[in-house]
């Protein structure tokens, strides 16, 4: 249920960046190894964003893969949890995982007033 605290932070970051403009969408970049349940964030968001500039905004989750490189045979692949027990190519356990821990607000779509 840490999604509650995370959703509060998402709204705070987005509203701060919106500088008074209405928010139509929030784009999040979440690594696959960061434990976040999209549906849960959306559920909290719908409740917590009421009466804010983000009310009714759409949440977009861009999942960033983690990559694995085998130290034995050099095989590279992208992975999702659970981690593979060994290299899918040579069965070595000497895998190195990188990336997949990303956790930020990438951008927001706001209403921008344009005069003639």
């Amino acid at each position: 249920m840490h999604e509650l605290a995370i959703t509060e932070s998402v709204i705070k970051v987005a509203v701060g960046a919106a500088a008074g403009r209405r928010i139509h969408a929030i784009h999040l970049a979440i690594g696959v190894l960061s434990s976040i349940v999209d549906d849960s964030v959306q559920f909290y968001f719908d409740i917590l964003s009421r009466d804010s500039l983000a009310a009714g905004a759409t949440l977009h989750f861009r999942r960033i893969p983690a990559s694995a490189q085998c130290q034995t045979c050099g095989h590279q692949c992208s992975i999702e949890p659970p981690l593979p027990p060994a290299c899918p190519a040579c069965a070595s356990v000497a895998l190195r995982i990188s990336g997949g821990m990303e956790f930020h607000v990438e951008s927001i779509d706001v209403e921008d007033d344009v005069g003639s």
Binding site: A5, I6, S9, V10, K12, V13, A14, A17, A18, R21, H24, L28, F103, H104, V105, E106, S107, I108, D109, V110, E111, D112, D113, V114, G115, S116
Partner: peptide
């Protein structure tokens, strides 16, 4: 009427838990 609402993308790139 001379003002219309248009969507604009604003780059944020800020850690979700930056306050924490």
């Amino acid at each position: 009427e001379r003002t219309v609402s248009i969507m604009k993308k604003v780059d944020v790139i800020q850690a979700i838990l930056s306050d924490n």
